[in-house]
Design a protein around this nucleic acid. Structure first.
Lengths: 112, 112
DNA sequence: CCAATATATCCGGATATCAGGATACCAGTG
DNA sequence: CACTGGTATCCTGATATCCGGATATATTGG
C-alpha cells in the first residue's frame, strides 16, 4: 500500500501544486467550465493578470493544463483525468477537520 | 461543482499539509500500520526525532491523527476517513505527469 | 529522589514560495 | 510600420515553511 519512498516525494510535490489557493481555484474553474481564456480566468479569479499567468505557467509546465492560441487569445484546458474525483475525495476527508486546519500555525496565512 | 471561495482557501491549506514529504510519509505509515509510537515512526522515516515530532504535532493539531499515551510511549493513529482513497486517487492523477512535476521550478527542492 | 527512556517544544537560520509591478512578447489591424 | 489587445516573463522583496540542535517535559523503575 505504501508506495516507495520516491513516490512519496513526488506526491508531496503534486500536493504542493494544490497548496496554493489561486492555483487550486484555476483548476476548479477549468474543471467546471472546460476551457477558458486567460482573460476569463483573470476575471473569474479577480486577481492581477501577471499573477494568474505565473500560476498558469506552473500548471502548464507540470502537465495539469494545455493551451491553444487562437489569434490573440490563449485558451486553457485541463490535461489530467480524475481531478473531479480527487477534489471530491479531498473535501470529504477535510470537512470534519476544517476548523482545526484553519488554526494550524505550521500552515500559514492564505494567499487568496 | 466549484465549492465556494472560502472552501477553496480551506482546501489549499488541507493540501499544504500533504505538501511536505515527511508529513505525507507519516500519514502513509499510519494508514498502513494503523497505530505506531513516535519511536517507531522515527525509525521508519529515518529522520531525527524532533523533526518527526514537529510534524506529528501539526498532524495532531489539524485533526489528522490522535494520540494515546501508554507509559513512556505515545501512540499515534489516524483520525480521518477516506485517506486511502484520496491517496490512491492522487497517484492516479499524478502518475502520467510525474516527470513534468519533477522539474517544476515553482515547486522547489524536496525536504526528504 | 535520581537516572534512564521517550517525546514535545523552541529558537535561530536557511531557503522556498508567494506577491507586485514593470516590461517583454505575440497577434491583429489599419 | 505603429498601435491596440492579450498574454508571458522577470526581478525584487516579503514572508512562509522548512531544518538542526538544544532543551524542556513526561513516565518509569530503582
Amino acid at each position: 500500500m505504501i508506495p516507495p519512498h520516491t513516490d512519496t516525494v513526488a506526491a508531496a510535490r503534486f500536493f504542493r501544486v494544490f497548496g496554493d489557493a489561486t492555483r487550486l481555484r484555476l483548476l476548479q474553474l477549468l474543471l467546471e467550465r472546460g476551457e477558458m481564456t486567460v482573460g476569463e480566468l483573470v476575471a473569474a479569479v479577480g486577481q492581477p493578470q501577471p499573477r494568474i499567468s505565473t500560476h498558469l505557467a506552473c500548471l502548464r509546465h507540470c502537465g495539469f493544463a494545455v493551451t491553444e492560441r487562437r489569434g490573440r487569445e490563449v485558451h486553457y484546458r485541463l490535461a489530467v483525468d480524475g481531478l473531479d474525483a480527487l477534489l471530491a475525495q479531498a473535501f470529504g476527508v477535510m470537512t470534519p477537520i476544517s476548523g482545526r486546519l484553519a488554526s494550524c500555525t505550521r500552515i500559514g496565512p492564505d494567499w487568496m
